[in-house]
Amino acid sequence: MSVVAASQVDRRTLIRQSARKSHRRRQIAGVVAAALCGLGLCIALVPLISIVALTVSKGIAAWSVDFFTRLPTPAGIPGGGIVNALVGSLIIDGLAAVMALPVGFIVALFLAEHEGRLANTVRFVVDVAAGLPAITIGLFAYAIVVLPEGHFSALSASVALAVLMLPIAIRAGETAIRTVPQDLWEAGIALGIRRARVARSLVIVSALPGLVTASLLAISRAIGEAAPLLFTAIGSQVFATSLGQPMASLSLVVYFDGIQPYPDLQRTAWGTALTLLVIVMLLNVSSRLLARRMRRFTR
């Protein structure tokens, strides 16, 4: 060992000993840590699986043909359904989507295409707005639509949900537009086409699957919200005949029937919760599948 200095040999021996001596301790620490992490996973899964399992089992028990085709009945009278809430949710969310998505995607195009202070400000404000409590947005819609008109309405609920969807549509839309290859822009501009046309004809078309994904995400987020509807659509036991009237919605049925002490209303709440869950999961899974297909496509 002529070339290895003495102190180095000492240190080497010391390190080897320490590595061996500490090995058991390190291994135990590792097993304990892994066990704690695994325990965390188990603790996390129990309530989450319980929620899904109970919603499915209790919800299916409440489902029937009548459930989806009839109007609600008062507590104690069997045979009620949620058809008005199902239709109401579709109308309120559909209208909100019509209001929010086009605006959202135009702003997304702006963010994807422009740099500068305005774009950064918009991006930051939109990010912060995505985290605004839904109930405050409900109050906003109340103040600008319900108060001046003097009555609760489906329209005010759509306004609230539109404001709620806007940040999601903008950020998801921006991501979708950014995945469009840059060559496409340059090719279009090199041909002398005006930017507006390039944007419309080339970019929007190739970002379309991404924009559909973004739309599905935004709609799925909005359809489960109840808080913004509390002071706008406010719920109803009958079919609304116009957008100016109070309207039923699935999420409101879950809340209003769920807090009642009557078992048959609670049953309706579970059945409606399952309906909502199925809709949200379908929207999410399809947007996920679409996103995956799109990724494979661009690769």
């Binding site: 240190r11 390190i15 320490s18 301790r25």
Partner: peptide
């Protein structure tokens, strides 16, 4: 690497780092 192998003594760490 020394810490990962259970060595905590400052003097040893300093020597090893310099060398």
């Amino acid at each position: 690497g020394l810490r990962l192998n259970g060595i905590r003594k400052k003097a040893i760490l300093n020597d090893a780092a310099e060398s």
